[in-house]
């Protein structure tokens, strides 16, 4: 049994929240720059140039890439041989408060979905925990903007809808979203499980590198096909037309019931942020 002080978790979450918001991950930068070199539509080229300039300014001046510094999604992979000394949930939330306060990040969380009073410190985090073998604790902080979150959809398809039904639903979701989620987007797709697990898988899919395909060749091909078809929709950067509508399509799956085919599409913007640390 290895002990980890909850205070170390607080410090780590705080640091990751600030860094994730100011420094775009290498995989997303690489996808944007590749898209720019392949984009032939002039308006789209201009937008992509400004997007590249923007994350350069953010990194140089240590300021948030986007003003929507998000609801703070925190993924924990907790080794089963780890004992956390202190309150885990409190430690994560304290990290969010510290990071968003000291890092001059926007406080975008209301304490109740209908009464809608801002909590003032961006807490609480959206906490996702997974118990894994080992004695390490992996923390991933992923600030999630809501312009793209609002364009996400979930549908309980029938097994007979099959792969074509999945493709049609994904394309419909991206088409309906149009310019709203700040394209070029990253599309996270969860297939299988239950109603809630499909949504979780879609969010988890957004944590995978945009340059890494599904390890199952069948799904890797589906990712490639969907990316191609999304980029043939013509929406383009910011919705002004062009090829670059999506930077990547990431699919995660799990077993499901004989009667069902849940599909969730979680859309993320071109500021797809996440940063991890292992304690």
């Amino acid at each position: 049994m290895r002990e980890i002080d909850a205070r170390l978790i607080t410090e780590t979450v705080a640091t990751l929240a600030v860094e994730a918001n100011c420094f775009l991950p290498a995989d997303i930068k690489s996808r944007i720059e590749k898209a720019r070199s392949e984009e032939k539509w002039e308006t789209a080229q201009g937008i992509l140039d400004k997007i590249i300039e923007n994350y350069g300014i953010a990194a140089r001046d240590n300021m948030p890439i986007c003003q929507d510094t998000g609801v703070c999604c925190v993924f924990l992979k907790i080794g089963q041989d780890v004992h956390i000394v202190g309150d885990l949930t409190e430690a994560v939330n304290a990290g969010v408060k510290k990071g968003y306060g000291e890092g001059y990040l926007r406080k975008s969380v209301v304490g109740d979905p209908l009464k809608r009073v801002n909590t003032g410190d961006n807490s609480p985090a959206m906490l996702y925990t997974e118990i894994v073998p080992g004695d390490k604790l992996e923390i991933t902080v992923a600030p999630k903007g809501f312009g793209s979150e609002n364009m996400s959809q979930l549908k309980m398809l029938k097994p007979s809808d099959g792969i074509e039904g999945v493709k049609a639903f994904v394309l419909k979701t991206v088409d309906e979203a149009g310019p709203n989620p700040c394209p070029p987007i990253v599309v996270g797709i969860g297939i299988g499980g239950t109603f809630d697990k499909a949504a979780y898988l879609a969010k988890k899919a957004l944590m995978r590198s945009a340059e890494e395909r599904n390890s199952d060749e069948f799904y890797a091909e589906l990712e490639n096909e969907l990316l191609e078809r999304i980029n043939a929709l013509g929406i383009g950067p910011q919705g002004f037309g062009g090829r670059t509508t999506a930077l990547a399509v990431n699919i995660e799956t799990m077993p499901t019931h004989i009667a069902g085919l849940p599909v969730a599409v979680n859309i993320n913007c071109h500021v797809t942020r996440h940063k991890s640390a292992v304690l």
Partner: peptide
């Protein structure tokens, strides 16, 4: 802003004379 507008907004823009601009979403630092 950024993104689509509803038909009631567009009708009001036509009637009174107004314009809807988009700034680049996600380019907050710039």
């Amino acid at each position: 802003g950024k993104g689509k507008r509803g038909s009631a907004v567009v009708e009001a823009m036509k009637k009174h004379g107004a314009v809807y601009f988009a700034a680049i979403g996600g380019a907050g630092a710039l």
